[in-house]
Amino acid sequence: MGDFFYPATFPKELCFVLKRELLYVPFFGWALASLRMIHINRGDREKAREAVAAQGKQVLKEGRWMAIFPEGTRTSRLL
Rank of each mutant, 00 (worst) to 15 (best):
V59N: 08
V52D: 13
P70T: 05
V25M: 14
G43H: 15
E62F: 02
A53V: 08
V52Y: 06
A51L: 04
F27M: 09
Y24D: 15
E71N: 08
K61L: 10
W30G: 00
L22H: 08
L78G: 02
K47A: 00
K19N: 06
L35K: 12
L79E: 07
M1F: 07
R64I: 07
V17W: 13
G56N: 03
E71Q: 15
R49F: 13
L23F: 05
G29Y: 13
I40D: 01
E71S: 10
E21K: 05
M37D: 02
K12E: 13
F28G: 00
V17R: 13
G56L: 05
I68S: 07
S76F: 11
M66S: 08
D3R: 15
F27V: 05
I68M: 13
R36D: 10
V17K: 15
D44K: 08
E50N: 04
G63L: 07
E62T: 00
A31G: 00
L18E: 10
F10Q: 13
G63A: 01
T73E: 12
Y24T: 04
L79W: 10
V17H: 14
G43N: 15
E13M: 06
I38F: 07
A8P: 01
K57R: 15
E71W: 14
T9Y: 10
L32E: 10
M37L: 12
T75E: 08
S76Y: 13
A48Y: 03
A53P: 05
G29M: 00
K61W: 02
M37K: 12
R49T: 03
R64Y: 09
V17G: 03
L60I: 11
K12R: 13
L22S: 06
L79D: 02
V25H: 03
E62Q: 14
F5N: 08
L22A: 04
G43T: 06
G43R: 14
A51Y: 02
H39D: 11
M1R: 14
P70C: 02
T75H: 12
E13L: 11
D44M: 08
L22N: 07
F4P: 01
A53H: 12
G2R: 15
P11D: 15
Y6M: 06
F4V: 00
F69R: 07
F27D: 03
A54N: 09
G2L: 12
R36P: 00
P7I: 03
L32S: 04
G2V: 09
L60Q: 06
R42K: 14
R45Q: 10
P11Y: 02
L35C: 06
M66G: 02
R20F: 01
F69I: 08
P70L: 13
A53Y: 15
G29H: 06
F28D: 09
M1A: 14
Y6I: 10
S34D: 04
Q58D: 12
L78T: 02
L60A: 12
Q58W: 10
T75Q: 11
A33Q: 04
G2A: 09
R74V: 06
V25W: 06
T75F: 13
V25L: 06
L35R: 11
T73D: 15
P26Y: 03
D3M: 07
Y6S: 02
E71K: 09
K12I: 05
C15I: 09
E50L: 13
R42Q: 13
G2Y: 11
T73Y: 12
T73V: 03
F10R: 15
R36H: 12
D44E: 15
R49D: 14
K57M: 06
